[in-house]
């Protein structure tokens, strides 16, 4: 279990460093950086490489935004296996819903609770 925490820290940290390098060295905006990372996660899952990373690093791989792309592909592939091409379209948000719905719900609650600063 301690190993899990250690590798979650290292892998999560490395993914963040990749993001930082994209922002600092290649001078991309945060929106560009995050979009590229999400696409990278999707591509990695397409090659079946992201799942082993999650097995290895746990939250170190599921918490960074790359996992969003991974989950999208995963849901789409799962449904695609059962229902063919239409399944690819309908299954996409099957697995991912948590992050987005949480962001929507908590975003709205946040807007109700808090006032803009400055």
């Amino acid at each position: 279990m301690m190993g899990m925490f250690f590798w979650a820290f290292v892998v999560g940290g490395i993914i963040c460093v990749i993001g930082q390098i994209m922002m600092d060295v290649f001078k991309l905006t945060p929106a560009h950086t995050l979009s590229i990372l999400v696409v990278a996660g999707a591509v990695l899952d397409g090659f079946g490489l992201y799942e082993p990373l999650i097995d290895f690093a746990g939250a170190g791989a599921t918490i960074p935004i790359t996992s969003f792309g991974n989950a999208l592909v995963h849901g789409a592939l799962q449904e695609g296996e059962q229902h063919g091409i239409i399944g690819v379209l309908t299954g996409m948000f099957e697995v991912t819903s948590a992050g987005i719905s949480a962001a929507i719900v908590f975003g709205f609650i946040g807007a109700l609770l808090f006032r803009p600063k400055g």
Partner: peptide, 28 residues
């Protein structure tokens, strides 16, 4: 709130979803 919520995050969702669609389609 409604129309500005995804101002920043929208691109992430768009490109993530579209890339996922293409990749999953190819693989399927």
């Amino acid at each position: 709130v409604g129309s500005n919520m995804f101002k920043l995050a929208g691109s992430v969702i768009l490109f993530g979803t579209f890339a996922a669609f293409v990749i999953a389609l190819i693989k399927t």
